[in-house]
Design a binder for these strands. Sequence first.
DNA 1: GTGTTTGCAAACGTTTTGCACAGGT
DNA 2: ACCTGTGCAAAACGTTTGCAAACAC
Lengths: 134, 134
Amino acid sequence: MEISGFKRKTRQREVILEELHRVKDHPTAGELHERVRARLPRISLGTVYRNLERLAGAGEVNKLEFAGTETRFDAVTKPHYHVRCTACGAVDDVKEIEEELIGGSFRELGGYLVQSYRLEFLGLCPNCRRTADS
Amino acid sequence: MEISGFKRKTRQREVILEELHRVKDHPTAGELHERVRARLPRISLGTVYRNLERLAGAGEVNKLEFAGTETRFDAVTKPHYHVRCTACGAVDDVKEIEEELIGGSFRELGGYLVQSYRLEFLGLCPNCRRTADS
DNA sequence: GTGTTTGCAAACGTTTTGCACAGGT
DNA sequence: ACCTGTGCAAAACGTTTGCAAACAC
């Protein structure tokens, strides 16, 4: 069974996945490219993009598309929500919400067959809150 | 009181706003440019972007930033939710949800001071549902 | 006349792609 | 040996910006 769609195992993909698992935050493709390049100096940004795209398709990484900003990637594939800081752009996981918030509540909306939804919180991160207290 | 921030009234902005009110869907800046160009052939895309940006800042238009796609604009400024078709990209208003879904429920998440949230539904529009029934 | 707003075109940042070559199988 | 996946560089994409000219006031 060819679930993943990958026909070859490559060092590049291996290291990309390793580094993504190693970081706690949600790096952009560019940031991840930087990290991976420390170990594989000749790897290209295109390769990072291509692998992340296919890994996301295979369900091995989570592709976080936020409105108005770069796409970020996450090694945690279990669905969860995010908060993004409107000041500095930091992205964190929301741990307080475990269960589905609205999932299942809406099967159909305005004739649309609802498949999923995107929920994203915006606010000030702890650091920026402190700075804002000036 | 200079609420809007506009110092001059221009034909370009007038027509942009008129055309945005005229369309039922949520056009991108490019689509709106096309429409406006039918009336003002020499208007530039940059002018459309600049005006939409400032009109959004003034609260006269709604800027809809969806993850993974172009920004769309809406003359309806009253907050409401949207459904986007995963097949054709159509964007419609969700009329069934009138009240705030989760607003006010979360003041703080993981140390973040929550200011707002973005909720977007994904699914198949009526047309694409029919097509999918093949 | 003053100074905001425009048209144009170039620049921008992110992502995608064409192609020849490297390297997994 | 095959042919997938890579490196490279260029292109594509939506959006922003610098500048001189146009025009609202």
